[in-house]
Amino acid sequence: MSVADYMTRQLVVAHPKTTVSVAVELMKQNQIHRLPVMANNRMVGLITHGIIQRALPSQATSLSVYETTYLLTKTTVDQIMETQVQTVTANAQLETAIAKLRRYDIGVLPVVDGEAVVGIITTNDILDAFLNIAGYGQPGSVTRVVVHHDHVGVIFKLGQVLTAHDLSIQTLMVVNRPDAKVIELHVNSEQVAPVNQVLRAAGFELEPVTGER
């Protein structure tokens, strides 16, 4: 899973001398919360809804709404933008982007190819990626196989057992717990009973599944 698989490619950008009021309108029109700031085809900063909020005068000040609006129309994004911008490459693994978002406690990473900005990936994109990987929304049911003592060939054996009975899976995920691994299989709802039956018969331990998918 690479960043390129899940990043947003259609960029909406600001220029250094774009006013904050225009930047806010761009975000509103495109239902986004951040804009790369570009100059001469090179990213020079990032402006976000949070940065703008922090730059606004406090409600405790005596500025009127009209004075605040005036400030927004006169302030340009290069005066308040973040210039030390964390980025990620398009061919990086998705896990690398997630780790970077966590490490720097941020919600967005511009995606670069050399010096060119080719996309942007956000925490919402990461969540969408997880739903896609998990097969969420597809008709089906979940079977969980508990492996207390991990060893080479467990997943291969699972595949052998299901293939021998002409049963298939939609997606497969592995959850690492402190004391075990759980192999989560998403299968066709009509096949969940025979899948569970043949796996138990082959000696696999199954965990009860509750809750909606």
Rank of each mutant, 00 (worst) to 15 (best):
P57N: 14
E67P: 07
Q93H: 15
A90Y: 05
A116W: 00
T68Q: 02
T123R: 06
N124C: 06
G114C: 11
Y66G: 10
G45V: 01
T87F: 05
L72K: 05
T83P: 03
I47T: 02
A129L: 05
T69H: 11
L101I: 11
L94S: 05
K74N: 14
E67C: 04
Y66W: 13
Y104P: 06
T123F: 09
R103P: 01
M81T: 03
S64F: 03
A99Y: 13
T73L: 01
L109D: 08
L72Q: 09
Y104S: 04
T76S: 12
V88H: 04
I106N: 04
L56I: 00
R54G: 00
N91R: 13
V118L: 09
H49N: 13
G45T: 01
G119K: 07
I80L: 02
V117K: 06
V77G: 02
L94K: 01
L71Y: 09
Q84M: 14
M81G: 04
P110N: 11
I51S: 00
S64L: 10
D78F: 07
N124Y: 10
L94N: 09
Q93D: 15
D128M: 12
A55T: 01
Q84Y: 12
L72R: 09
M43A: 12
R54T: 08
S62N: 15
I121D: 03
G50C: 01
D125V: 09
R42M: 09
M81D: 09
I121K: 02
V44Y: 05
V111H: 07
L131W: 14
A116V: 06
V118W: 06
L56M: 14
Y104K: 05
G50E: 13
D128K: 11
E115P: 02
S62A: 15
M43D: 02
R102S: 12
I126G: 09
T76D: 07
T87H: 01
Q59I: 15
Q79E: 15
A116E: 06
P57Q: 14
Q53N: 14
L101M: 15
D78K: 00
D78H: 11
N124E: 13
A92C: 10
L46N: 02
Y66S: 14
L71G: 06
R103V: 04
T69A: 14
G114N: 07
H49F: 08
Y66M: 13
T69G: 10
Q79V: 00
S64C: 08
A129W: 05
D125H: 02
L101V: 10
R42L: 06
A129R: 02
Y66P: 03
G45R: 06
L71I: 12
A99T: 13
N91E: 15
Q86E: 08
H49C: 04
T48Q: 08
T69D: 12
V77N: 03
I47V: 15
N91F: 13
L46C: 10
Y104W: 13
P57K: 14
V111M: 08
V118N: 08
T68S: 01
L131D: 15
D125A: 04
V77S: 09
T69W: 11
V44E: 06
L63S: 02
Q53P: 03
V117W: 01
T48E: 09
T61D: 00
T69K: 11
V111W: 03
Y104A: 08
Y66T: 12
S58R: 08
V65L: 12
V77I: 12
Q53G: 11
V44R: 01
I98M: 07
V118I: 13
L46R: 03
I106E: 09
S62Q: 15
D125F: 02
T73A: 11
